[in-house]
Amino acid sequence: MSMLEVKNLGISFGGLRAVDDFNLTIEKGELYGLIGPNGAGKTTVFNMLTGVYKPTDGKILLDGEDVTGKRTIELNKEGIARTFQNIRLFSDLSVLDNVKVALHNQKEYTYSTLTGILRLPRYYRLEKEMDARAMELLEVFGLDKEADYKASNLPYGKQRELEIARAMATNPKLLLLDEPAAGMNPNETQSLMNTIRFVRDKFDMTILLIEHDMKLVSGICERLTVLNFGQILASGDTAEVLKDPKVITAYLGE
């Protein structure tokens, strides 16, 4: 069974058909790319997958279960986590707390508000376990030394990685990355590529990413879908899609 199956997904904003007849199938453990020119509708697809927008038509199946029309927090509980094109960290919280807060819905770390206020033994035990789990994730992203920093004081590239760490803390089945390399220099992009590949391998994660950096896309994505004016232009194996004349004229050739 596929991890994600999207059938005939579409959305209209007033008269504007932002995404039309969008189909996508991603297998478990796959690293999948979604590319296309600005305004093509890529972020809108993410927003539908995460319940920010309700699709006007179509179906979304996650791990075989129909999750169409669910709310954002329910979809996150079902296992869809994301990052944002414009970084959205909890800027006044520490790096560590940015990850800890994302453990919110995991049963093994849950305690009541009253337990927290009264500082019952369970509070101390679970906070310690959360610290350990969050540090573990921060280490994967090389952020453990900055755990006490305020998130907004991190350099740009690290903020992007912290966003991925935070998404991973919700223990997702499917990770959506919206232009993770945007604004990064070549070195940061290279290290990000390694991290993404590492996350996929270590957690057997299914990843769908939007990206403009062709080096990153061709370097780590196994399959691609190209979106243009809200419609699929091409999809398939990365190397083949990037050779497609339609894709080259619409997007790569310029």
Binding site: T50, L89, D92, L93, V101, R166
Partner: peptide, 23 residues
């Protein structure tokens, strides 16, 4: 400094992101 407090401050700092992590 508890689970609920972090959730509250996360909402303050970025409502959309807080929603995306299931708060």
């Amino acid at each position: 400094n508890s689970r609920a407090g972090r959730a509250i401050m996360a909402i303050r700092d970025n409502r959309i992101a807080a929603e995306s992590i299931g708060i």
